Simulated assay, not measured.
Amino acid sequence: MDKPFCTHLGRLAIRSLHAELILYPKPGLVSLVDCGSHHDMTAATFLHSMFSLRHYFINIAEAGMNNAPFAALKHLGMEAEVRMLSATGGINTHRGAIFSLGLLCAAMGHCRAHRVTLSARAIRSALSTTWGGALAGHMHSTSTDASISHGAQVAMHHAASGAREEAALGFPSIFDIALPALERTLEAGRNTTCARIDSFFSLMAHISDTNVYHRGGMAGAATVRNLAQQFLALGGTAHPNWESHALDCHHTFVRQRLSPGGAADLLAATCLVHSVLSNCRWNNDLS
């Protein structure tokens, strides 16, 4: 067992959640500046939630190292969700992140255990070869439980993709959309904040966010997608007035109570993948 690797990975996961929280302007979402479209949570709520998850990502990375079946990963995620809800007074701050970042940590742990160099391809391969069948089944499963998530209800009603489909397909929105957008902005010489903003808007422009459908229906989803596409068409953060454009989008979302929480979860996951792939120390010591 490579405890130092799992511990470091767990810290990076929490830092990635924190990076998503503090990003601003982040249309419709909670930040240190305001609560976006939410009246039931603040930045403090998210910080309490993160503290409750500090051991979860370490534990699920260890499970991935041990080739744990998907049922075991799911059990760890459900336990983490109980701790999150206890810490937040029943408010769902990180359900999607528990699922997405947790699976990524497990996949990275699996790569580490098999001495596979960490790369986007390796992480996606670990997901598909180790838990692909179970993830496909999880994507198509339905629940008669009254506690079925809003995301699952919306996915069934609108046929919108959600976290389950993302995972079953190897997180294409992260690896094919958000991560390349983030890297392009950094390569252009702009800072990390700009890179994360461009990544976030790229996600909003491409994904069918079940959180948005839940609050705004098809019209709300179209608003989110269209405004994000307009922001990117203007050049994203390369535009000299990008902050003003992002703030206008934020105010529109708040007026319409739109909250792209699915995109936020995927942004945090993108930050995690980027952090891990940028940290060469874990690949250099595989020899």
Rank of each mutant, 00 (worst) to 15 (best):
H138W: 15
M78K: 13
E187T: 03
K26P: 04
A63D: 12
I207N: 05
A228H: 11
I22C: 11
T129L: 13
T130Y: 03
L272H: 12
S52G: 07
G235Q: 06
F57A: 05
I197N: 06
I123Q: 11
S149W: 02
A268N: 11
A219N: 13
F200Y: 15
N92V: 01
T117C: 11
A80P: 08
K74M: 12
L258E: 06
P27Y: 05
E81K: 13
A233W: 03
A80T: 04
G236D: 10
L247E: 14
R215H: 10
I148G: 01
T144C: 11
H150S: 10
L21S: 05
N283A: 10
H138C: 05
A19F: 00
L29Q: 05
A205C: 10
Y24L: 01
A87Y: 09
A222K: 14
D265S: 12
C6Y: 12
S287M: 08
H245R: 14
A246D: 10
I197Q: 09
N284P: 00
F70R: 07
A113H: 13
V116A: 11
M204S: 06
G235E: 08
T210Q: 10
K74L: 14
G132N: 12
H55Y: 08
G77H: 08
D40S: 08
M84L: 10
L53K: 07
W242F: 15
A13C: 07
N59M: 01
A268M: 08
R11C: 04
I148T: 14
G236L: 02
A219K: 13
G109F: 03
M50D: 14
R83P: 03
Q230E: 15
R124P: 05
V154D: 13
L234W: 11
D285Q: 11
H48K: 14
D2L: 02
L47V: 15
I91M: 10
L267T: 02
L47Y: 09
G216C: 02
A219S: 14
R196Q: 14
L135A: 12
D198W: 02
F200Q: 09
A126R: 11
M139T: 12
L135C: 07
A268H: 07
V212L: 05
P180G: 05
N279I: 00
T210W: 06
R196F: 01
G89P: 11
A19D: 15
A263D: 08
N226L: 06
P260C: 08
A136C: 10
T42D: 15
L169W: 05
R190V: 00
G10Y: 01
E243T: 07
A178T: 01
H140C: 02
E81I: 01
T88I: 03
T42Y: 09
E243A: 12
S141G: 02
M108V: 00
K74T: 03
Q229A: 15
I207G: 06
C271M: 09
R190S: 11
C35T: 14
R54L: 06
D176R: 13
P172E: 12
V273W: 10
A68C: 12
S199D: 07
G133V: 00
P172S: 10
L76R: 11
V82W: 01
K26I: 00
I58Y: 13
Q153C: 13
T185F: 01
L21P: 05
C111I: 03
G216L: 04
S199P: 05
E183K: 12
G235I: 00
V30H: 08
